[in-house]
Design a protein around this nucleic acid. Structure first.
Lengths: 104, 104
DNA sequence: GGCAAGTGCTACAAAATACGTAGCAAAAAT
DNA sequence: ATTTTTGCTACGTATTTTGTAGCACTTGCC
């Protein structure tokens, strides 16, 4: 049997990370976090910021992100990042810079 | 009209970032990058690493990531990260740490 | 009060995407 | 030469996303 590539991974990806990457690997998930970066937005404003994403999908993403504890809904205000959400944003900020320089 | 929330965003998300977030917001895209973090993997090994993702989807992701210049295919070796891909990985590594600590 | 506008959110059919399995042609290993 | 392994395609099914319409509720205003 060939060596090197085909051998079983010693360090396999943890379930937690796989789960996280699965959540973030859904459409608009990262974008929603990004759009809430500087200010709270209500449902319709958030939808507009995300290129008019379907309200059903927005609703689904908001639920998931809320379950993850990344965003919270403030009755008179709209949606905004929690402390954990802001921390995540700070982490993905360099990713934005990367995108700016590597994609036209 | 209410003020603050509903006003039009001063700084709107750039097209490049929107594009990048759209690419990464596809299933398995980030995961594939992650699995190639330390070593090259061939098609089948990469598929196995990604929980047995469908070959059609894997093929699609590989094409897209190759078009983005993040991975490259080496004939006898398999797929591996390009310099840009490794740079992206270095950026998303903290995100992995974050996921480990914030999700069970 | 009453009316208009804005709100979060749901419904639903159509399109796109992902899944799961089977299998093929070419290369590699034996 | 035969077996194994490889990258990859095909295809029917399930899931997700899209796009549009609209409902029930609150908010601002006269």
């Amino acid at each position: 049997m060939a060596k090197g590539i085909q051998t079983i991974r010693e360090t396999q990806t943890s379930a937690g990370l796989a789960q996280a990457l699965d959540h973030f690997g859904r459409r608009w998930a990262l974008r929603v976090i990004w759009e809430l970066r500087s200010e709270a937005l209500n449902f319709r404003a958030l939808r507009a910021a995300c290129d008019g994403i379907s309200p059903a999908v927005m609703q689904a993403r908001l639920h998931q992100l809320r379950d993850l504890g990344l965003i919270e809904q403030i009755p008179g205000l709209g949606y905004r990042l929690t402390a954990a959400g802001e921390q995540l944003f700070r982490i993905m900020a360099p990713l934005a810079e990367w995108a700016e320089s590597h994609l036209e």
